[in-house]
């Protein structure tokens, strides 16, 4: 149509060939409903293979191989290193302390996270968007700055609230509460990030139905909302647990790193490595990596397809 003159005024619609068939036409089949599975352009070309190779090579060199070597180093002397680590009371104490702190902080973050997610998704209030943005801040703050921030407020000597709390007999910095605070800070957004999308997707029709049937807010939450979001909560808990077990920098700043008292598993890894106990360092690291990788696999395998 290279030379068609498009500036001509449109002609009238006279030339329509046939009249439409009368009224009760057979219902047209639904558009696109039964489209066969279609694989575009079948076989991957050489570029696709090249990209595939680059990606696999990159991730293998950066993540997979090094990760594998940690396992290998941990078992260089068979199970000796692992046995040594697990029979050293200080290390065991550190592992238990890590677990304890992680458990408390996950519990706090779960309650807080589910609560704030419900508030964000189901209610309107001034400042909602600002709050939503602020909730992601802990992900981008340096762990060292987290530690510094907590010391400036809760430090026993010149913190904003620290001295008063200490007079009341509550030591926070260089003690377990401070480590719990630090851990809770860094893992704070994880439950929220999992639960909010689920809540949005579920909608509130079922909740309204339950209320209209006479269920109170608590019964509605327990019997309708919670079952609907339980997987989101579960993934949030698993990811928070991994993050909490593994926190290092923030805990290091606020813990004082006292052997047998406030030293966590991640601090043990550093200490052992710097004291030339590489076997012990790798064995402890292996245990921590196991928790992390297991968490990722659990979430990846059980998360319904199509959600991220």
């Amino acid at each position: 149509m290279a030379d068609h003159d498009l500036t001509q005024p449109p002609k009238d619609a006279a030339g329509v060939a046939t009249a439409a068939p009368a009224g009760f036409a057979e219902p047209a089949p639904p558009a696109r409903a039964a489209r066969p599975a279609r694989t575009r352009s079948g076989r991957p070309g050489p570029v696709a293979y090249l990209l595939r190779l680059v990606v696999i090579g990159y991730l293998f060199l950066l993540i997979a191989w090094p990760l594998y070597l940690v396992g290998q180093n941990a078992f260089k002397d068979g199970f000796d290193s692992l046995r040594d680590v697990l029979s050293d009371p200080d290390t065991v104490h550190a592992l238990l302390l890590s677990l304890q702190i992680a458990a408390i902080s996950v519990a706090i973050n779960t309650v807080f996270g589910v609560g704030i997610s419900l508030l964000l998704v189901r209610y309107d209030f001034p400042g909602k968007r600002v709050l939503n943005a602020l909730l992601d801040v802990p992900l981008s703050v340096s762990p060292i700055v987290v530690g510094l921030a907590l010391i400036l407020v809760y430090g026993g000597r010149d913190g904003w609230f620290g001295p008063a709390l200490e007079d009341a007999g509550l030591q926070i910095i260089f003690s377990t509460p401070g480590m719990v605070l630090a851990t809770t800070f860094v893992a704070l957004p994880l439950v929220i990030r999992e639960v909010v999308p689920v809540l949005e997707e579920v909608g509130d029709e079922q909740e309204q139905a339950a209320r209209s049937l006479g269920a109170g807010p608590l019964a509605t939450f327990r019997r309708i909302t919670l079952p609907a979001i339980k997987w989101g909560v579960a993934y949030g808990v698993v990811l928070s647990l991994a993050r909490s077990m593994g926190e290092f920098g923030a805990v290091k700043v606020v813990s004082g790193n006292v052997l047998g008292a406030t030293r966590t598993a991640t601090l043990v890894v550093e200490e052992k490595y710097l004291n030339f106990d590489k076997g012990g360092a790798y064995a402890t690291a292996f245990l921590l990596a196991l928790v992390a990788v297991a968490s990722v696999i659990v979430v990846s395998v059980f998360r319904p397809k199509g959600k991220r």
Binding site: L59, I63, A64, P66, L67, L69, V70, P143, L239, A242, R243, M245, G246, E247, F248, G249, T266, L267, V269, E270, Y273, A281, Y282, A285, L288, A289, A292, V293, S295, V296, I297, V299, S300
Partner: peptide, 18 residues
Amino acid sequence: EIIIDVPFALPTIVAGLV
């Protein structure tokens, strides 16, 4: 997919060792 998420979950001190 799993390997990509590992750095999210791995303790940073372990990442250094890795």
